[in-house]
Amino acid sequence: MNRVSFSLIRMLLIARNTLLEASRQKLFSFLLLLALGLVGGAQSLREFNFGASELKFLADLGYGAMAFFGAALTIAATAQLFFSEIENRTALTLLAKPVWRAEFMLGKYLGVVAVTAVFCALMTGLLVAVLWSRESALLRAIPDSFTQGRTLRIVDLLLAGYLQWLKLTVLAAFTLLVASFSRTQLFTVVTGFFVLVICHLQYLARDAYAQGGSTFAQVAAGFVGLLFPNFQLFNFADDVGAGIPVAWDRVARVSVYALGYVGAACGLAVFSFRKREI
């Protein structure tokens, strides 16, 4: 094994196969259609909107669907695509060839990342179309409310979609890390959802204990805050829906933040998988 060097081509081949395998799965099609249906049909739900402006309501719903169904898809697809190789023994056949375990793991990861990219691209595209058409209709109906022109900027909508995807790539890396040492798919899926919840809520624990917990609790909450990324940082949907421009430097910083955690989680997944008996 040590005689062959690490190959990006082999890794990309594994990623391509993972993407193909994912596209054949019913789960992917089901979640994608469900999410697209929700966003596409969001206009019919706007009658139920009381509080926010109509465009903000539609944007909220669209990005909410992307985050919710995207997270479900990421966790389920990562666990399913990893464990199908283990349970069908195809991993044994593959790793008996001159293929690095790192190539296998990173290939699987890139395959899942490609799946989430397709999902987010389709969702963002549909959301942009829905928002654009509704804003055009409102512009014609009530031009007095749009004296400054259009409030939504396409580039901001795309950036918010990109950040949702970035969040899913971090989630996929953490799910793969869990899968690398987990024995069952169910454990991986359940733990993946716990990771999702912790990443969304870790700031609450940090705040609560910083305000008045014991020293031990403060240290423990701080440690949890270091272990898990803060997923609230990826949420720009509020700004976009309200027509507030997204700052590019913030997007760049969040991207670096995400890449840092992706790198660490993938590296640790490879480390853990190398020690695993298949």
Binding site: L45, F48, N49, F50, G51, A52, K56, F57, A59, D60, L61, G62, Y63, G64, A65, M66, A67, F68, V197, H200, L201, Y203, L204, F231, Q232, N235, A237
Partner: peptide, 20 residues
């Protein structure tokens, strides 16, 4: 905090139905 974290963008529609 928990609703914000867990419901995300779905907060608006859930709150609207609760208002109904």
């Amino acid at each position: 905090g928990v609703t914000l974290g867990l419901l995300g963008g779905f907060r608006a529609i859930v709150a609207d139905f609760t208002w109904l």
